[in-house]
Design a protein around this nucleic acid. Structure first.
Length: 352
DNA sequence: CAGTCGTGGTA
DNA sequence: TTACCAAGACT
């Protein structure tokens, strides 16, 4: 199949079938950047409401740059991969302070921004500035691997070089932005991971995977290593109408979000957690309840969480463990804090 | 380079 | 139910 014929067929399909999305027909780098960060490892259906919220609360990069991190994380709450939100804010502040509020237009300058990797830099350079660079996301890798029958593991850097070379060659001189978006949309709607729509696919005749019935083999992707278990005992400590919460400030899961008092266990246990923290709290406990274990699944962790509700008496001097990291918050304050979805769901069922 | 980082949807 | 995985980036 000739290069020009391929591009023409793809663009024709795109005009007829693409989804109308708010960031699609704009050249506004702010909107394109925002949508691309939100859509990293995230489906359009899940990301769309967040995009609307962000545009509504932060209509410009300047407004975003002025926001406190906790507010940005609260807006991001529920989307996951929270480093994206922290880097989003970092990046906005750099755009304002070092670029006078205007995004750089070149791939290599964009690549230096926090949270902007090879994919996102190419997407912004292409969609906002019509730079003729190939945009390689999961959709493009999948379609390309199937169509050309490439069995290189797409998680390797070698695959990056190999696929980039093929797509750079395929990229038309004109309408490269449209071409890139079309290829991604095609992967998302037709050449899907499971049960691709080969019967109606406009490329089904020349497609290697279709010819060789290897739609389920390609693309080749290294398997994720199995999840490990974590055992979280959360203490919802209440005093009057207040609830004790603390910031997770160390790098790792849920950095920047707020949670209840966490006592991590080594293994599954039906017993009340023990240790110095519990000992310090013990004399102040007025009431104690607990409920069944919640299993919270992350991409690489299984969190077995058990929540304990403690009501403690109104002492002047807080027990030492409670003074160190967090403090008591009112219900209104708790509602505004960014929280892991696990914590948010628990509080909605038992606290609010 | 391998490990880390969320959440929700699908088969 | 289990496994996969979605418009990746960072360390």
């Amino acid at each position: 199949m000739q290069k020009q014929g391929f591009a023409e067929k793809l663009l024709l399909w795109y005009e007829e079938n693409h989804r109308p999305l708010p960031w699609r027909d704009t050249r506004d780098p702010y909107k394109i950047w925002l949508s691309e960060i939100i859509l990293q490892q995230t489906r359009v259906d899940q990301g769309l409401p967040y995009y609307q919220k962000f545009i509504s609360r932060y209509p410009s990069v300047k407004k975003l740059a002025d926001a406190p991190e906790a507010d940005v994380l609260r807006t991001w709450q529920g989307l996951g991969y929270y480093s994206r939100a922290r880097n989003l804010l970092k990046c906005a502040r750099i755009i304002v302070s070092e670029y006078q509020g205007f995004f750089p237009s070149g791939y290599h300058d964009l690549l230096r921004l926090p949270g902007v990797g090879p994919y996102t830099a190419a997407a912004i350079a292409s969609f906002a500035f019509e730079e003729p660079v190939a945009v390689l996301d999961g959709n493009v890798f999948r379609f390309t691997a199937r169509f050309f029958g490439i069995d290189t593991d797409i998680t390797t850097t070698q695959a990056g070089r190999e696929f980039r070379e093929i797509l750079s060659e395929l990229l038309p001189a004109k309408h490269s932005s449209r071409f890139n978006q079309a290829l991604m949309e095609f992967g998302a709607l037709v050449c899907t991971p499971k049960k691709p729509e080969c019967a109606t696919c406009v490329f089904n005749v020349p497609c290697f995977a279709r010819q060789n019935k290897k739609q389920n083999i390609l693309p080749v992707k290294k398997k994720a290593k199995p999840s490990t278990n974590l055992y979280f005992n959360y203490l919802a400590i209440r005093q009057g109408g207040h609830l004790w919460m603390a910031l997770r400030d160390s790098p790792g899961i849920w950095q920047g979000l707020y949670e209840l008092l966490l006592i991590e266990g080594e293994e599954k246990s039906i017993h009340l957690p023990t240790g110095p923290v519990m000992s310090a709290l013990q004399p102040h406990i007025v009431r104690l309840d607990f409920d069944e274990e919640h299993l919270h699944i992350l991409s690489h962790r299984n969190i077995h969480a058990r929540f304990y509700t403690l009501v403690i008496n109104d002492v002047k001097l807080l027990p030492e463990p409670l003074r160190q990291k967090g403090r008591f918050y009112t219900k209104e304050e708790v509602g505004r804090l960014p929280k892991p979805i696990l914590i948010d769901k628990y509080l909605r069922s038992r606290f609010f």
